[in-house]
Simulated scan of single mutants.
Amino acid sequence: MDFALTEEQQMIVDTARRLGEDYGLEYWAAQDSAKTFPQDCWSAICETGLANVLLPEKYGGAGLGMLEMALVVEALAEGGAGSTLGQLFMINPIFGGVSVAQFGTEEMKAKLMPKLAAGELNFCMALTEPDAGSNTLDMDTFAAADGEGWRLRGQKIWITGVSTAGKMLVVARTRKADEVEKPTQGISMFLVDTDREGLSHTPIEKLGTHTLSASSVFFDDVRIEPHELVGTLHGGWRELLQVLNTERIVTTASLIGAGKLATRLAVDYGNERKVFRNRPVTSYQGVQFPLAESHAELECARMMNLRAAVQCDLGQPYGSEANMAKLVAARAAMHAIERSMQTMGGMGYAREYHVERLWRDARLFKFAPVSEEMILNFIATHDLGMPKSY
């Protein structure tokens, strides 16, 4: 498979790299400390068209593919943001863009896509539940038919970006699990206003990724109108998987960027830091080998992620590739960041050297948006033909 970039793709990467460096380490450290949404950076990303590479040209996008999206996210993350940069793309071009562009009505596309492209409207997705966790099919949130629309009741947890979103993609049951032949049946997606009567949310205090809030969300008899259905009524499971698999690619790209950023910080520090016989720290193999190993791991994860992106763009199955890339990238990024911290010694623990933020943010993605264990379950059953274990 040829991963040589076209001239257009290289221009996109160069633009993303420059913008990522413009909003570099100090910017993200300040946003992290203040726990504020990086609006200036996101507006710049939208203004340059980087957020819109995947959106249809008809609605203000570039009409390109997941490959370009992965390249953009990786370059931006490597510029200074780290892995949390990927969350900006998850909530908007993926949760909002992919769901609406692929499964929304023409009216929905015409109304929402230009606002997404311009950075005027943020999205979020309400999927995970307190009692279901990774077992999405065990969700209790239910949208009961009410005239031509529905009434939504239930609770979600660990929902990213609710406080800055105008629209929420809600995944709910529209048929009870005991009323369908398969648990994948009776699931639907809706796109509702976050300020809708009956919808409330409370913040969750967390270790990292401070630039985007995480919240518990409560639905108390929330009215859903007929035009807010996204995709197929009762048949939204497979459509949801398309959204989630593209989310994997974006997550992986940001992890690779974070790992590369941490490695660069360690090498720059180690090349300048002199020890013992006035030799750079990085002249010792005990320091070189871990960083070199992390670099190799990151490159392998990157190749698998680009393969997943290409297969997605070609309309070929890519779920296994996307999941494997995410598994390897989450581990590789943590290896790279921890080894970079170790290279810096005590200074790696100091906020002013930035690696501690990269560690706090990247740690989330060992179990989110899908855990290592669930990925291994998927590989065991779908790729190796083993019996389902859960």
Rank of each mutant, 00 (worst) to 15 (best):
D40F: 00
W42G: 06
A44W: 08
I45K: 03
I45T: 01
C46L: 13
E47R: 06
T48S: 04
T48N: 01
T48A: 01
G49N: 15
A51G: 10
V53T: 14
L54N: 09
L54G: 14
L54I: 15
L55D: 12
P56W: 03
P56Y: 11
E57R: 12
K58D: 12
Y59S: 03
G60P: 11
A62L: 13
G63K: 12
L64Y: 09
L64A: 05
V72M: 03
V73M: 05
E74N: 12
E74L: 15
A75L: 04
A77G: 12
A77M: 03
G79Q: 11
A81P: 04
G82Y: 04
G82F: 07
S83K: 15
S83G: 12
S83H: 09
T84R: 07
T84Y: 02
L85Q: 03
L85S: 07
L85N: 07
Q87R: 06
Q87I: 09
L88Q: 00
F89Y: 04
F89L: 00
M90C: 05
I91A: 02
I91Q: 08
I91T: 07
P93T: 02
I94W: 05
I94T: 08
G96T: 10
G96A: 06
G97C: 07
G97R: 08
V98P: 07
S99T: 06
V100R: 12
V100G: 05
A101V: 04
A101G: 03
Q102D: 02
F103T: 02
T105G: 11
E106C: 12
E107L: 00
M108C: 03
K109D: 12
A110W: 03
A110Q: 13
K111F: 01
K111M: 01
L112T: 08
M113Y: 08
P114S: 04
P114D: 03
P114K: 02
L116I: 08
L116E: 01
A117P: 11
A117H: 09
G119Q: 11
G119Y: 09
E120L: 13
E120G: 11
E120A: 15
L121A: 13
F123Q: 10
C124G: 09
C124S: 11
C124Y: 12
C124E: 10
M125C: 10
M125I: 15
L127I: 15
L127F: 14
L127E: 13
E129A: 07
E129S: 06
E129V: 01
D131H: 14
A132I: 13
S134K: 00
N135K: 13
N135I: 15
T141G: 03
A143S: 11
A144M: 11
A145P: 07
